[in-house]
Design a protein around this nucleic acid. Structure first.
Lengths: 231, 231
DNA sequence: TTAAAATGATGACATTTATCATTATTTTGA
DNA sequence: TCAAAATAATGATAAATGTCATCATTTTAA
């Protein structure tokens, strides 16, 4: 009986990131020899803005929030991380410092891959390098659209965006138990928690959603999309 | 007498981007064989959001504004481009479309380098690839800080940021003839042009700057920095 | 199970900032 | 050089949104 080259977790975890498929068996082995796992309880800091980065991170299971720590203790949630995404800040190829904080929202199992290995793979495999550039570019692109949304849309448009993002990108269903509280929803949409509550109520009264506390159900997606587009 | 390998413009223009210094003579030659130049008058579109990207751009001379076209015809100026910076959107390694527009602010001479050559260089030279990743990462980092500034600072803080950016990064002097008009200053700071005018006047009354029309002179930089930091 | 803590909800009010109308100034081009 | 166009300046007003105080509900942990 042949011994499997990699343990179960490694394969499933890593292979969810498309770009690892460009690697040869040997290169994948190199990667697996330099990976570490850690577990986190909800609300724990996985890495903190300002701390040194020496690895990129993949979630094996669970969800986390990626957020900028802004002025006066206010936060801006950039995105919700779930398994299969590479989480690496712009500091990874710059000043080697984290520029945002990653905090678990649920129980999280995370896989850390040493940056020196990532850089080695960039040298060894140009398809991998190109995939990495592509990944970073796409994240940058999302930031552009986030910037437009947060600065130019009014509150209902921003909140509609958030709900659609959660339904389409994160939960992949139109009814879900929200892991973000109202404050965090505010951090994601750049509004006060009170405003989140008020507009969520408006949406409910207009028959766009059904919401009681953490449960949200989208009732009229086309209308929600219209609000998102018209700001 | 030996014939120089590259014409004057190529060397000076390209070498201003640090990352081209990683190339061998042969690789630089390859690059120079696939570059094109074009001239633009003030206000002309160099490339437009939505159009296909097949090259990255370097300004040989002049300045241009990089801006997102947002909702209702409103713009967000991301940065001012000047010689030595690579201008390539996140679409270059993604959907091959531009996601922002580049417009000349002065007479501009621009140098276009074919993307296929850039990708070839990524394959041939891993130091170049790493430099490219680093460049893209740094731009992404600027976007993070732009997002925090535009969403969390109040108008005086945002305008102070803009003036300091222009003085430190663009003009590299504390007295300069602004090439942006009030509307564009508003597009850069996410405020209405009337608000720009009012706060600029406040700054002048408080002795922070001297400003008549396009000329701006910073009188009290530390105070301006304080306003920038405190939002 | 129950008290404490956290989160959610609501209304009154204040602040920030945009919009609109109008006038002044500067720039541009015949 | 001068009229037209573009840009800048100003004031009044309105809209969007945050803040604060308070109370209700839900969750947590002893």
């Amino acid at each position: 009986m042949e011994k499997p080259k990699f343990e179960f977790d490694c394969r499933t975890c890593l292979y969810r990131w498309e770009n690892f498929k460009t690697l040869t068996e040997e290169q994948l082995q190199l990667l697996c020899n330099h990976r570490y796992e850690a577990s986190f309880k909800p609300g724990e800091i996985i890495f903190k803005k300002g701390s040194p980065t020496s690895s990129v991170i993949f979630l094996v299971s669970g969800m986390a929030k990626v957020f900028l720590e802004g002025l006066d203790g206010k936060s801006i949630i950039i995105s919700i991380a779930k398994p299969g995404m590479m989480i690496s800040g712009p500091g990874t190829y710059g000043d080697m410092r984290h520029h945002f904080t990653l905090t678990s929202l649920t129980d999280v199992k995370a896989c850390f891959i040493d940056m020196t290995v990532m850089k080695q793979l960039v040298h060894l495999n140009s398809a991998f390098a190109e995939g990495l550039i592509s990944d970073i570019s796409n994240k940058s692109l999302l930031m552009y659209y986030k910037l437009v949304g947060l600065t130019q849309k009014k509150m209902p448009g921003r909140l509609a965006d958030a709900i659609l993002y959660l339904a389409n990108q994160i939960y992949e269903t139109d009814e879900f138990d929200l892991i973000l509280n109202r404050q965090e929803l505010g951090d994601f949409t750049n509004m006060a928690k009170e405003s989140v509550i008020r507009i969520l109520k408006d949406f409910e009264e207009d028959g766009l959603i059904e919401s009681n506390c953490s449960r949200i159900k989208i009732l009229d997606k086309p209308k929600l999309q219209m609000i998102s587009e018209n700001g």
